[in-house]
Design a protein around this nucleic acid. Structure first.
Lengths: 251, 251
DNA sequence: GCTGATCTGTGTATGACGCACACTGTGTGC
DNA sequence: GCACACAGTGTGCGTCATACACAGATCAGC
């Protein structure tokens, strides 16, 4: 039933600073954050594909296998990288209303991803348990303080916002994760060209109708517009729930 | 400016059936869908990690390198796999209202992912251009017929729904993608235990408050509830937009 | 029906990768 | 002062994506 610290995966123990009692033998030279930082440096410079145990170790002046003293697998390395890349969230403005607070939180998440676009390529196997990820979650939940939302409501809502931000950022940012030899604009134009060639009005009337009036090639900031559109929509949905809860409705 | 078929990546040419003029030399033995089906079989049986060029080729009785006659890279193989895995969407019910239609569409997407959970692990580099992906998009757009939403509204909305379904399914389904040696329930319980151990009320009051009243261990169908909660919220947000558009507001 | 261009599928090879394992030397707690 | 647990090393294995040269098959054009 109860759970003790030493049953945790080693990575989580290290990230949470849960050292066991003092033991004989040499002390570790590295800190897990050193490894994370080195890996993040590589990923920022050349994408997630450039991160290998070998390269990270070399970056630190160690051998490949030494990393396995800190990290049980490459997936664990990813956990450390994400932890490092997201960093600590700024506290949401306590004086603002919930919409402004959630927006602030969503923008922070998006900015973090923009700083480290490879985050979206990291394969996810488990829900987060690392300290900074939980801090982000905590901060997100706090943004709903003062609303009539129940605790499960708040959890589901912040999860929804998080899902949205990740998803839309993946959609709008994946092109500049890609290769550096194409600008985002060029990639967009190429896509629009191909889409209009393939999605013929006969077989795909709705798609064709959507794109024929130049939705794609207006110069406006498509990414920001799309981000705001979806966020507004999600917030409107949450607002509807808040209204219902304020009226005392259960469903 | 204009785009011709032969500038398309080979995979797209094959998926769209855009054969060039007849040329000398032997005709291909395989069809691109054969490759997709074989790869999907492997992924369904043992996860995306079990898909290698080698194994797919062996499954078909060919050599590894033969696949490169059809597919330029492993990423292209992924495209073919996703195309095969999603299949053709059922048409949405034209008599239902837009909420029912979108819900139907969202459930279809979710079901497809549930049938092939590895879909969520496939790295995404480009927006989709394959025929069946466009068919899903077309069908989603058609679900908004009869609403006062503009074409860009509809595109953004269906993108939002798609983002949501993928995201929430990843969150609720990633555990059964994982290893077969843990049931989903066990994994959930382990997670809840660890979360309650790590997210102490002093440092993480909001998280602790959310989980202390047993949000996680009620036996109810957490996945379905969460899916419905978010979808309802998203649809409520879109409904707010529809109301605004019906009132003739531009913003 | 011949011919030659051209394509399909094969065989071999390469460099990178994650990681298992046995080992060495070190420095700490007793 | 000493034993020994542990940090970091070196080597090696199996797997992977994919480059490249090649052999044989096959069809278009004459």
């Amino acid at each position: 039933m109860s759970q003790t610290a030493d049953e945790l995966p080693r990575v989580l123990q290290l990230l949470w600073g849960l050292e066991g009692p003092a033991r004989p033998g040499p002390k570790p030279t590295l800190q897990i954050t050193d490894i994370g930082r080195a890996a993040v440096r590589l990923a920022d410079a050349a994408g997630l594909g450039a991160v290998s145990m070998n390269k990270v170790a070399a970056e630190l002046g160690f051998t490949t296998m030494s990393l396995y003293r800190y990290v049980d697998s490459k997936d664990d390395l990813y956990v450390v990288m994400v932890e490092e890349a997201f960093g600590t969230p700024d506290p949401v403005d306590p004086k603002a209303d919930w919409r402004a607070r959630i927006t602030q939180w969503a923008v922070m998440v998006r900015d973090a991803i923009h700083r480290h676009p490879w985050i979206l390529q990291v394969p996810v196997f488990e829900p987060p348990l690392s300290p900074k990820q939980l801090l982000w979650m905590e901060e997100g939940l706090r943004a709903f303080e003062g609303t009539p939302l129940t605790n499960p409501d708040r959890l589901s809502s912040i999860v929804l916002v998080n899902i949205y931000v990740r998803g839309v950022t993946q959609l709008t940012a994946n092109l500049f994760v890609n290769q550096a030899d194409k600008t985002e604009k060029e990639a967009d134009q190429l896509y629009a060209q191909r889409l209009m060639m393939l999605a013929t009005p006969e077989r795909f009337p709705a798609i064709a109708a959507t794109f024929e009036d130049g939705t794609f090639d207006d110069g406006s900031d498509f990414d920001d517009d799309e981000f705001e559109f979806g966020l507004t929509t999600v917030l409107d949905g949450i607002e509807a729930l808040i209204t219902r809860r304020a009226a005392g409705t259960r469903r």
